[in-house]
Design a protein around this nucleic acid. Sequence first.
RNA 1: AGUGGAGUGGCCGAGCGGCUUAAGGCGCACGCUUGGAAAGCGUGUUGAGGUGCAAAUCUCACGGGGGUUCGAAUCCCUUCUCCACUACCA
Length: 423
Amino acid sequence: MLQVKHILENKEQVIEGLKKRNLDAETLVQQIIDLDLERKTSIVKVEDLRAEGNKKSKEIGGLFKEGRIEEANAAKLEVQKAKTEQKNLEEELNNIEEKFRNLLYQIPNVPHTTVPSGSTEEDNEEVYSEGIIPILHEGAKPHWEIVKKKNIVDFETGVKITGAGFPVYKGKGARLQRALINFFLDEAEKSGYAEVIPPLLINEASGIGTGQLPDKEGQMYHVTGDNLYLIPTAEVPITNIYRDLILNENELPKKNCGYTPCFRREAGSYGKEVRGLNRLHQFDKVEIVQVVHPDESYQVLNDMVEHVKELVRKLKLPFRILRLCGGDLGLTSALTFDFEVYSTAQERWLEVSSVSNFETYQSNRLKLRFKKDKEKPQLAHTLNGSALALPRIMAALIENNQDINGDICIPEVLQKYTGFSKI
RNA sequence: AGUGGAGUGGCCGAGCGGCUUAAGGCGCACGCUUGGAAAGCGUGUUGAGGUGCAAAUCUCACGGGGGUUCGAAUCCCUUCUCCACUACCA
């Protein structure tokens, strides 16, 4: 969430910035400012009473020690009365603070100055593209037909076991998944990211920390028996490693990568969009995460984009990079670049990575700070990116690399991981 | 999962209703001392929030939340984590 101080000091700038999200935040921001004032007034009242109470209690302690029992008892009665008022005021303060927090949770991150305004993905700005879209032979097929024929991804069995969106990868299909995971992890480690294997279930505090809760609860699978959530992305557990920490400035940047399955309910999705591997409830992804000094976060965002570029390039997939417009930007992000690869048989672009700078939006919720010597701790910046999400990469590879015989050619960089060059 | 025990500052560890303003130690930082260092001595050593131009000052935090009390690290309830034993299991 945004820092209150930042809102107070940059009211107009915040409201103006949020317009890019097609959000008129005027009322909301004003409510927050008003409530903050109310909050402070209430704090003063409560703390004054507390201070007085503390003083009196100490005096009573002294009276008892001196054996002045009657005076002490009289003082007790007096304080007891004052407590009622204090309790009421404390309750009032609690209410204000809860309301205040809820309002703050509602305000999305302020988009970076370079974010284009716009409402849908149509308004995203293409900033880069690379690679040649292959011309497929007559009779080329979409990936869902190829994987069926080759028996490497079995959707029907997944439906039987769990439901739609939970495919079973088989044989060389499974092997290809594993190859991609290992390839992505090795590349990440080469770029200096330390690998972690995090939990796949997270608690409520972690969900709030990275911004999935309270707003996007419906998108995660909720294990109600234990009040845990299946991770929608490794971003959540990996970033939460640093929750409640005060790092030394010289420990920055923190760079982590991790492979995890991801679980998304994707309520409301249907049709061509979800066909085959296009949109799944469970999918594999390698994620890269950084915690950095605020002065460096945009340089780092660039580095992360370059890292992802290199991955897609090595897989020889045609891709483009989009700067997300305000309307398409996630709640917590200040600037996001999406990577899309071209899936030739479907004749459409598929999003395979999203690289974002959250500035202090997450770290403020996470209480993730760093400190230089004796200076006051300050919030770090957090970033993350998919590097990469597997199913759509697989879809594009399968479609783009099908040859005249209907076989799938494995890109050279993957062959040492797969152990075969064709499926 | 059951039963019992325990969670105190950067770390160890005392305190078990009011001289706690959290003892003592270790570590760390600075100073004195020294040719230099060690030892020794001295000083300091958390975070959040409020008031104030500032100096300063107040509030909150002893795993988390709630309660009892004029007053809670200390008593009660609840929850989490760790340890031990029992049961189960890859």
